[in-house]
Computed example of a mutant assay.
Amino acid sequence: MPGREARPAVEAQLLLASCKGGGPMQKRFLFFLALLLIVSLGLLAACGQPTPEVIKETVVVKETVVVEKKPVKLVMSFVPSGDTQQIITGGEAIERLLEEKTGYEIDTNVATSYAAVVEAMGAGNADIGWLNTFGYILAHEKYGVEVILATVRFGRPYYTGQIIVRADSGIKTLEDLKGKTMCWVDPLSTSGYVIPRVMLQAAGIDPDKDFAKTVEAGSHNNVVIAVYNGDCDAGATYVDARRTVEKDLPDVMEKVAVIAESPQIPNDTVSVRKDLPPEVVETIKKALLEIAQTEEGKEALKQVYEIEDLVEVDDSFYDGFRATLDAAGVNIEELAK
Rank of each mutant, 00 (worst) to 15 (best):
D83I: 12
T84V: 13
T84F: 09
T84C: 06
Q86E: 12
I87W: 12
I88G: 02
I88Q: 11
T89A: 14
T89L: 12
T89M: 11
G90L: 06
G91N: 14
E92L: 15
E95G: 12
R96C: 07
L97E: 14
L98C: 04
L98N: 06
L98H: 06
L98G: 07
L98M: 14
E99W: 02
Y104R: 03
Y104F: 15
D107W: 10
T108E: 11
T108A: 11
T108C: 14
N109G: 14
V110W: 11
A111Y: 05
A111R: 08
A115N: 10
A115V: 10
A116W: 05
E119W: 01
A120P: 00
G122S: 01
G122E: 12
N125G: 01
D127V: 09
L131N: 12
N132D: 14
L138V: 11
L138D: 00
H140C: 00
H140W: 02
H140Y: 10
K142A: 05
V145T: 13
V147Y: 01
V147E: 05
I148S: 03
L149A: 00
R153I: 04
F154N: 15
P157W: 00
T160S: 08
G161W: 04
G161Y: 04
G161Q: 08
I163A: 10
I163D: 10
V165F: 07
V165G: 05
S169F: 10
S169G: 03
I171R: 12
L174D: 08
E175A: 10
E175D: 06
G179K: 01
G179A: 01
W184C: 08
D186P: 03
